[in-house]
Simulated scan of single mutants.
Amino acid sequence: MRVKRRKHAKKILSFYHNAFRLREPYQVLVDGTFTQAALQTKINIKEQLPKYLDGSVLLVTTRCILAEAKEIGSRLHGALLILERYQCRKCGHQRGDKLVPAAECIKSLVGLNNEHHYIIASQDQELKGGLRQISGVPLLHITHNAIMLENPTPLSRQKAEETLALKTAPSSHEKETLDKLAKLLPKERGRIASGRIQKRKIARGPNPLSVKKKKAIVAEGMKLTKKKTRRRKRKTNDLSKT
Rank of each mutant, 00 (worst) to 15 (best):
T225D: 09
L131D: 02
H141P: 01
L66V: 01
R191C: 12
R157I: 06
S240N: 11
L155T: 06
I106V: 11
G130S: 15
A216Q: 15
A69N: 04
L224Y: 08
T229M: 09
Q87D: 14
N114M: 13
Q48Y: 09
K214R: 14
T168D: 14
R191D: 11
I202G: 10
G129P: 06
K10G: 08
E150P: 01
R230G: 11
R231C: 05
S56H: 14
N237L: 14
D54A: 10
E188L: 01
P50N: 04
K46H: 12
L109R: 00
I72H: 10
L181G: 00
G111A: 05
E71W: 15
Q87E: 15
R23W: 10
T236F: 15
Q158Y: 13
T62L: 02
L112A: 12
P101E: 08
R132A: 07
T242N: 14
N151M: 09
H141T: 06
K175Q: 15
L49F: 05
L109V: 02
A19V: 04
E115P: 08
L140V: 03
A67L: 13
Q40K: 09
R230Q: 13
P208G: 09
L127D: 02
A160H: 06
E115L: 14
T225K: 11
I106S: 03
T153H: 03
Y16A: 04
P206D: 07
Q40G: 06
G205H: 12
L112R: 14
V211Q: 13
I65Y: 06
K175I: 10
S135H: 02
N207P: 00
E188V: 00
P138C: 08
I197L: 14
P208N: 10
C91Y: 03
L140Q: 02
L185V: 04
S108D: 14
L76I: 03
S56I: 13
V110T: 02
L81T: 05
V3N: 08
G190S: 06
K214I: 07
R200T: 09
S171I: 04
S172C: 12
V110I: 11
K4L: 09
K10F: 13
G78A: 08
R23E: 15
T163Y: 12
A103M: 03
E104H: 13
M222N: 09
L99S: 00
K159Q: 11
L209D: 12
V137S: 07
L81G: 09
T41P: 01
L149Y: 01
R232K: 14
R6Y: 09
A79N: 03
Q133D: 15
E68T: 03
I45D: 01
E220I: 06
S171C: 06
L83N: 00
K11P: 00
K233W: 14
R132F: 04
R85Y: 06
E47T: 07
L66T: 00
K11T: 10
E188N: 00
Q87T: 11
K241Y: 10
K90E: 13
R231N: 07
K235T: 12
Y86V: 01
D179T: 07
L127C: 07
A19F: 06
S172E: 15
T33I: 01
K10D: 12
K167P: 02
D31L: 00
S194H: 11
A67W: 07
H173S: 11
T168W: 13
G78Y: 02
H8C: 04
S156I: 02
T62C: 04
R157Y: 07
